[in-house]
Amino acid sequence: MMMKCTEATQMLSERLDRKLSTKEKLSLGMHTAMCSPCRQFGDQMKELREITKVYKDLNNVETKE
């Protein structure tokens, strides 16, 4: 059954925190291939992480030894 956008967007968020299984990657890939808004959402999640990293640098945050 086709994945819903609510499920796809949650998986696109979780992708930042854990490795998706092969099955998850496959169903997410099938969904985003046909769903342009979810593709945009996936790009924006990556962009958000990059923005957060720059924001951290601007605030002189150093947390790694």
Binding site: K4, C5, T6, E7, S36, P37, C38, Q40, F41, D43, Q44, E47, I51, V54, Y55, L58
Partner: peptide
């Protein structure tokens, strides 16, 4: 999201053109 679990038409993510969030852009930060 609509009740069917898909994006509401008016809320669909738009492409973020030219993010322009460089270090020099204080307004963005």
């Amino acid at each position: 999201f609509a009740k069917n679990g898909h994006w509401n038409k008016s809320e669909r993510p738009q492409k973020w053109d030219d993010p322009d969030h460089g270090v020099e852009n204080n307004h963005f930060w």
